[in-house]
Design a protein around this nucleic acid. Structure first.
Lengths: 213, 213
DNA sequence: TGAAGCTCTGAATAATGGTTCACTTCTTTC
DNA sequence: GAAAGAAGTGAACCATTATTCAGAGCTTCA
């Protein structure tokens, strides 16, 4: 046997795969899923179409990886703020929504691709899956808030679903727009609305539209 | 000249077109946009694939017609309840949401296709367009409610967008599910949540989960 | 250095599904 | 009933793209 993959070679492959995923993410953020063909994505990553299949068994698999990574990051950040943050449940809820919205508005192309852009069924399923997870995160905080007497009795799953949908819908237009006027006002209004939605007594003081992460 | 389209013949053509649109709607409701190929839809309407092009210049045009009609009906019903209904703005808002949700739950397949099922870009654009219109309907009632002192100061456009997204997201799972358990509870909870969202003081008495239209 | 075995390439292939079109069938009118 | 012209048919056509694969070029190791 005259050839065996050396560790360095393995690293190189892994790095190439990484680079491919990153570039694919960029392409998707720029032109949307529909226009991100294998050839275009491969070219952006500086490789040929055929090489993509060295790293992924199909285009769908690559698309899923791109989606999961990007969405996973957001989910993680949201989870940290909602459950690892400080303050009571309502405060954390407000913070979480504000952080989420801000991050989205800072990466419009990507956020739009993840939230709304038309895509192949495989990615659509991921979207549903991740929405379910966002919902679960929200539901936990809401349950906590209800238990602490900060929020009125309600079905936390429904409010959580509503928040997930509401945030997405409120952001869609601003994300598609080209100017980013009034991002602060938007975030403040969205947060206030979300708190009402959950039944928190509106207390503008508990919201700090500042720090964007 | 030995042939001229007779009125009866024109009617027959119009009826055929009508039938095509209706059957296409049924097919879409049953199998989703993705599986509603021209051949399948044509077969359902009892005609050949080629004949579809007698009535529509392209598959996309037919899909758009199907979407606009079905969504248009819902928009109309919602508009009637929101603006033509009786009671104050808050009451009408609650009624509108309840009616919308109920109608969706009674036509799950169609509602799912209109609200969430993956589809070609042309229909996706229609979806955005119609969501904008739903939003506008909600925004008007909310403005009215604010003006009447029934709702707190807020950006009606944002709350309206939020309601649009929230209702859709809350319904997605139940629409996809096969049992229709607890539809009443769902509608009641959704309505209450929506009212909180708009900032109405929750008054369960103002909601009548009854009559489904 | 050279054999072995890998990665990379990109043109060829395959599959899907909308669209066309030569032909058949039906309607109208004289 | 026959000519003129429209509607209907469905198999062939076409466009688009994901996927494959034979060959070129590297990397490893004796």
């Amino acid at each position: 046997m005259a050839y065996r993959k050396t560790p360095a070679e393995q690293d190189r492959l892994k790095a190439a795969r990484e680079h491919l995923v990153e570039q694919a993410t960029t392409v998707v953020a720029e032109v949307g899923w529909a226009n991100a063909s294998v050839t275009v994505v491969a070219a952006a990553a500086g490789m040929s179409a055929g090489s993509v299949y060295q790293h992924f068994p199909s285009k769908a698999a690559l698309a899923i990886e791109v989606f999961r990574r990007a969405s996973g990051r957001e989910l993680e950040v949201l989870g940290e703020v909602l459950h690892g943050g400080d303050g009571d449940a309502v405060h954390r809820l407000a913070q979480g929504i504000a952080v989420f919205a801000r991050r989205a508005l800072e990466r419009r192309g990507l956020a739009y691709a993840l939230l709304a852009a038309p895509t192949e069924p495989a990615v659509g399923e991921q979207r549903l899956e991740f929405r379910r997870r966002y919902r679960e995160l929200f539901a936990q905080v809401i349950r906590e808030g209800v238990a602490a007497g900060l929020l009125p009795a309600q079905d936390p799953e429904i409010t959580a679903a509503a928040l997930t949908g509401a945030i997405g819908e409120v952001l869609v237009d601003p994300l598609a727009a080209h100017d980013d006027g009034a991002a602060d006002a938007l975030v403040a209004e969205l947060t206030a609305m979300s708190l009402r939605c959950a039944g928190a007594r509106v207390d503008a003081r508990s919201v700090h539209p500042g720090g964007s992460r």
